[in-house]
Amino acid sequence: MSWFRKKVVPLSRVARRRQTPDGVWVKCASCAEILYRQELERSLWVCARCGAHFRIPAAEYLRILCDPESFEELFDGIRTVDPLKFRDGRGKYSEKVARAQGGQPSREAVVTGRARIEGIPIALGVMDFSFLGGSMGSVVGERVARVTALARRERCPLVIISSSGGARMHEGILSLMQMAKTCAELARLQDAGVPYISILADPTTGGVSASFATLGDVILAEPNALIGFAGPRVIRETIGQELPAGFQRAEFMLAHGFVDRVTPRGEMRAVLGTLLRYFTDSMARRVPHRRTDSGARAARNPFPAGDSSSPVLD
């Protein structure tokens, strides 16, 4: 029994705190600079002094990246349940979800739908770390899979902004299976020749990094975002030594070849616009006989059975 009891903070307050902070003044968690909230909002929640990128909720990303009024939310009718009747040391999963939802039952760790960026229609998913650490349970997996299928059907690029601690423990094995679900849908998207741009925000780890987040045709990361499979605490405990500075940060992942670019938040929209134009233009120009399934598949079987004509090779 400890002399000092941990002060119990109601989760709803924590959840609100983890979103964009209230109050006129905000302290930068990285350099401790006191920043004026309105100024911070204008700078897209990037510290003017040290360049730290604050974690921001999905709604902020929509505001920052999408054309005004262009976002149309879809699949918000997919709602969280408690399949295992899970209960931990602090209480029931169902109550935890209810508190995180704050009376808004459609709230979950991802928002999905149609949007436009610089006029180009896309299918979009944005994760929300402020909802149970952005963890992936059945709802996240299903919404991501549905928006991926939407991209395939409508032949518009898929963009997903990830921010997650990993699979949600409270839904047990079903959370793990969301990795297989989202990856299977991404295989179909790739086979259909539709591009996918993955954006990694702080943090992207565990089951989300080990599924859809690291499978983008192009992968962009926000500066200093923590990106990896295992969390730093687990690694530190496993190997019993301190981790090198900058370990698992976006720049580290860039140096090791796992992201294409580290892109500051303020440049993200323009970079996305250029990439999206490139891909939609490429899709429009594609010569019919080159419209194979995925390139890899075609390479493995350049002479499909029943095709006796000599194929035109690239």
Binding site: S209, S211, T214, T238
Partner: peptide
């Protein structure tokens, strides 16, 4: 999957994701 420095440097997450897909 092993949680270590080398595993992260060589893309443990990507290796798993790709295999699953």
């Amino acid at each position: 999957a092993y949680p270590g420095i080398g595993a992260e440097e060589r893309g443990q997450a990507e290796a798993i994701a790709r295999s699953v897909r």
